[in-house]
Design a protein around this nucleic acid. Structure first.
Lengths: 148, 148
DNA sequence: GTGCATCCTCTAGTAGCTAGAGGATCAAGT
DNA sequence: ACTTGATCCTCTAGCTACTAGAGGATGCAC
């Protein structure tokens, strides 16, 4: 039976080391055994658990949902109604976000297409921002934050 | 010339009061005059500035981009190249997010459709999370966080 | 005058990590 | 044996963009 350092585990599940410690801290991962020198020692099974978490997070499930899903995974005799509910909720959330972002895209495209050459005084981008009435569609508050 | 309390300004621009103080703190809004009792006093023009900020934020521009856009709006004699660049950048960011979310949607739909009636042991939602190989498409890390 | 709304400042909390300080220990190469 | 670099430890702070709350001082209407 092989055991892993935190670094190996991180590589095996393609997750950063501090993230593992963080998951332990919030109770998504159990506290592992330690060596004489306080280093964490993991079993192979933890790779699967961590991969499960990672996958759920990639799909956008919030941590608390992941916690519930893990709990179901740990107790397969329970009914999976809540897993279905969580998945449906997440799907609805994603579709909602897509709809919002598509409205934003429309608006941004219009701004970019109008463009302007020259002074900001005549800039349609600036003008669009100043004058919400120019918007063709409603665009509510999205989830900000750029990926860059 | 009418002047406004922070509460009136908040209502006029449909923004919460603490948000205004926050924008002042980070320098998006200038420090207003104060009454004898230290209460903020705003001019009508601030409503437009705040609406500009709100609109830009709704379109997903990060604060630092808003700062640049405001700066351009304040100095209309400058060229608006950077406004165009920011808008294009934001458009690209939005399109990127849409693409990611559509991949997630596909995956989640598959999970939900497979569903399951009964025990978590046979739940396709749980199984999908445990086994990434079941995914039909790549879905990278999205921007998580549920709206609700 | 009484009570509620609004204002003030300051601090902490939200989500989900990520980065860094400061220090100990391990593993490989010479 | 020694050195060097990688890895480990804990703890704290930072990121985004606000939001909520404590604790207290006014303002405004009846």
């Amino acid at each position: 039976m092989s055991s892993l350092t935190i670094g190996k585990l991180a590589k095996a599940a393609d997750v950063k080391v501090p993230t593992i410690r963080f998951y332990e801290q919030i109770g998504l991962l159990p506290e592992p055994d330690r060596t004489d020198n306080d280093r964490r020692v993991y079993q192979e099974a933890t790779v699967r658990r961590l991969a499960f978490i990672k996958h759920a997070r990639q799909l956008g499930f919030p941590i608390e949902a992941v916690r519930s899903l893990l709990d179901l995974s740990d107790h397969p005799e329970q009914t999976c109604d809540s897993a279905n509910a969580l998945a449906e909720e997440q799907l609805a959330s994603v579709e909602h976000k897509i709809a919002q972002l598509e409205a934003l895209r429309t608006e941004l495209k219009r701004m970019v297409a109008a463009g302007c050459k020259g002074a900001a005084a005549d800039c349609q981008v600036i003008e669009s921002l100043a004058n919400h009435d120019l918007c063709q569609h409603d665009h509510g508050a999205p989830e900000p934050r750029r990926s860059h």
